[in-house]
């Protein structure tokens, strides 16, 4: 396969707080290729957002610091770039769409002013051209009567339309990588479908790479080419989307797939993962999933397993299941 657009390896970002060191990201590895969607899936607090902030080097200093790993963007390590050069990449070649569009929009400026500002900054054009481009950008993301709505303020848009504005803003500089952090979590399902369709168009028409962060396995299955499953700050499994669903290896991935109700399928009983996700400030030694794991052996709570390559495109972090021969997928994971 061609060189990945983005290759993250061994990423570690920690927060040094009064309560101790919070290892928010502590072993994240994945690749993203042009024209593909990588899903990052995991429960709240597992380090998904901190991973994206680390890529953009926006982790809040001085508490938060990226203390290890590599982030190769077209072969260049972003962690080693001077801040001035990083500014040229941020919002320009790598753009971020966050869960709450309100946090990325300024409430006292019209959406037009905000998009134009981004266009002028990145494309060095005059205001009239910028305005034309901004209207075109709003039309491209499906905002009706863009030429008049461009002069409205963010609060005059519905949640779904606001998310479109943010996407238009992100796209206005034609980024090569779009990071979407739970872009539809706050939206209703019919609006979510519209936004996901839009992101799929972006991927196909612009050949952009997308990192899509979500906790919804349905969104992963519909949208992603590759998937990184995170648990307690670490990638525990990484593979192409078909393998993740048909032949999941990590007990956490398997557990997640068994615990969700599936539309159109009547299971009399769900199989939950017992227990709670751990606190990142009080992680036990060894595998963080050990207290909840059905495959637990003594070694699990003594030593942290490494992310091991078990197939061309399949990596797993587990003492027990990484070495196992392929077994038929667990009931409930496939049909």
């Amino acid at each position: 396969m061609a060189e990945p657009l983005l290759k993250v390896s061994g990423l570690q970002t920690h927060f040094f707080t009064e309560e101790g060191v919070v290892k928010a990201v502590d072993g994240v590895d994945f690749e993203v290729h042009r024209g593909q969607v990588l899903g990052i899936v995991g429960e709240s607090g597992c380090g998904k957002s901190v991973t994206t902030l680390s890529i953009l080097r926006l982790v809040a200093a001085p508490q938060g610091r990226t203390v290890g790993g590599q982030i190769l963007f077209k072969g260049q390590d972003l962690l080693k770039l001077p801040e001035a050069q990083m500014r040229g990449i941020r919002g320009n070649r790598i753009a971020l769409i966050s869960q709450d569009p309100l946090t990325s929009l300024n409430p006292v400026l019209t959406v037009g002013e905000q998009i134009m500002e981004a266009i002028i900054l990145h494309q060095h054009v005059d205001r009239r051209t910028a305005r034309k481009k901004a209207i075109a950008a709003l039309e491209a993301v499906g905002i009706p009567s863009a030429a008049s709505r461009i002069d409205e303020y963010p609060h005059q848009f519905s949640g779904g339309m606001r998310q479109r504005v943010v996407i238009a803003m992100a796209l206005s500089c034609e980024p090569e990588l779009l990071i979407a952090d739970e872009p539809t979590t706050a939206l209703d399902v019919t609006i979510q479908a519209q936004i996901l369709a839009l992101m799929d168009d972006i991927r196909r028409q612009r050949e952009a790479a997308i990192i899509l962060i979500t906790h919804d396995l349905g969104v992963v299955a519909e949208m992603c080419d590759y998937v990184a499953v995170m648990y307690a700050g670490k990638v525990v499994e990484y593979s192409d989307v078909a393998t993740i669903f048909a032949n999941p290896k990590h007990p956490y991935t398997r557990g997640l797939l068994k615990s969700i109700p599936q539309l159109g399928e009547k299971k009399s009983r769900l199989v939950p993962i017992e227990g709670q996700p751990p606190s990142l400030a009080l992680l036990p030694p060894g595998c963080a999933f050990a207290p909840r794991c059905t495959e637990y052996t003594r070694k699990c709570s003594q030593q942290m397993p490494l992310l091991e390559q078990i197939d061309t495109n399949h990596m797993v972090r587990c003492w027990v299941t990484a070495g196992q021969q392929d077994t038929p997928a667990p009931a409930g994971a496939t049909r």
């Binding site: 009706p144 209703d188 479908a193 519209q194 299955a221 519909e222 078909a242 669903f245 969700i260």
Partner: peptide
Amino acid sequence: QALLSAAPIADPTQRKRDRMLLQGDL
């Protein structure tokens, strides 16, 4: 029908190609 069509299915072998997309907002 639109609600069901819009709901993502957690199974990549059942990807929906022709979703019934609703236009506009509530």
